[in-house]
Every structure is written in C-alpha cells, then in structure tokens.
Design a protein around this nucleic acid. Structure first.
Lengths: 123, 123
DNA sequence: ATATTATTGATAACGTATTATCAAAAACAA
DNA sequence: TTGTTTTTGATAATACGTTATCAATAATAT
C-alpha cells in the first residue's frame, strides 16, 4: 500500500501554496527549502503518482516546458511571463471564442496562452 | 555564399504546398516523395537556414512537437487534430479576447489552440 | 520494539530530438 | 571543363528530460 511520507506530502503542499503551475525544477527547488536533501527522482515519482490519482494535472504551454498544477474544476487559461518564466492562472474564460473553427472541423476544446510580463516584472 | 540546391528548394516548396505547419518528420517524409534519398540532417539544416532568414516560422503548440510554417503576416491560430495529429491554420482572429489579463499583467500576445477532429477525421 | 515492505536519494541508463563530423557529390566561377 | 568550395547523407555525438537500479532509510502492522 501507499505510505505517507514527508516528501510526497510536502510536494503536494508546495503545489497548493504556489497556486500556479510549477515545473519539475520549481517543485524541486521550492520543496528543498523544506526538505533540503530531497532528490529529483522523488519529485518525478510523486508527480507521477499524483497524476494517476488526478490530484494534479499537467499543464502544457506552447514552447514552454511541462508544468503541473493542483487539479481544479474550472476551465482556466494561462499567462506566461517572458521575463521570469513563471506561469500563472488566468481566470474567467466564458468558454466562447470570437471566431469559428474551419468548415467541417469539430472543436472539442481550446487552450489560450497569454504571453507578456507578469505584475512583478512589469514594475 | 549560399548555393541553390534541389534539397533546400524542395523543402521550402513542400512547406508552401502543405499550407499548414509541418513537423520535421512530416517534412522529411513529404520531401522524400520528390527526393527519395534526402537525409534528416539536411532537413534540419534547411529549417535552421530558413528560420534565420525568416522565410519560415516556428509553431509551438501545447503538448505537441515543434512544427514549421511559411512565414505569414497575418495573426493566425491553430487547430490540432487528436486523430491524425495534423496541425491546421485557423484564420480570422479579431485579436481581442473575451476576458482580461490579471491585474497588473501586461499581455503582449496570445496564442489559441483548438483541439478536436479535423474535417477528414470527422467523417 | 521488531519485522516487513515501501520509499528515498544518488546516479546510471534510456529515449528522443538535434547537432557535429567527414568523405563523397553537387554547385558555382572562371 | 576544371578547380574550388559548399552541401549532402550517414551516422556518431550530444543534450536533456525522464525512468530504472539498488542499498540505505523510513513507515506501518503486529
């Protein structure tokens, strides 16, 4: 059976507190502030396990490396800051776009990525 | 100086005729119908060269491998078919979205990816 | 507390996309 | 046509993200 460990628990906590999608590297660095010796293999194992039980979700952005966020019910989009390379959630998509798919195409979902400067980097 | 070769010329022609973003593999396979012996290194070299002189542009889609398309002036988005894995251009974005960036964020551009079934795979 | 078994950390191995190497072939200038 | 130099194709090398291996450690049941 799956045992409760400090490592796995902390990794999920880190993702919850961040409240934005994190890369493996960000998860590793942030978790090391709490558990300095944690290894990268443990991060990958925890992520794999949390993906399987749907507690976290993969976030793919065009041209950026894979991120992971705590699974949420809402349909969110994302903002990527070109300066600090952080990704943020963007709430409030109505689900409708102001243009249509090409003739004969069936659109099942859409993903929107905003790119620019985050509030920190805009200063 | 840069010499004109059958290989490079054909690769650009393949991209123009396709009229949609192609992956390295798609470029290789399609070009081989015209030049059977062409090697993958040549495709990579041609792509690099055409990227440098801006004749083609990288197309990044979330969770998909890199594609390349002939550079165009218009602001296009893309449709990815989950069945055949082909990517298509989607014309007609007004440039405005029906939701805003978070407070303090400066959005410089947006990218929209539609996912579903293309016209062929919908049949 | 002890025995059992899952988990961890270090790192080797792997997969895949891309680039480097180099002799043979092709493009160009004269 | 000939000589020079770029390009090509085959493949070795590289980069990098992820997974496998394994002894030591930690979590759980008794």
């Amino acid at each position: 059976m799956q045992r409760d460990t400090k490592q796995r628990g902390t990794i999920l906590k880190v993702l919850k507190i961040a409240d934005r999608p994190l890369s493996i590297e960000e998860i590793l660095v942030t978790t090391r502030k709490i558990i300095p010796g944690i290894g990268i293999a443990t991060v990958y194992r925890a992520i794999k396990s949390y993906l399987q039980n749907k507690k976290i979700t993969k976030v793919n952005l065009p041209g950026c490396q894979q991120r992971y966020e705590v699974t949420s019910l809402e349909h969110n989009h994302h903002f990527w800051c070109r300066m600090c390379d952080k990704v943020f959630k963007v709430p409030g998509c109505s689900g409708k776009l102001n243009f249509n798919s090409p003739e004969g195409f069936q659109t099942e979902l859409h993903e929107i990525t905003l790119k620019g400067l985050c509030s920190e980097c805009s200063l």
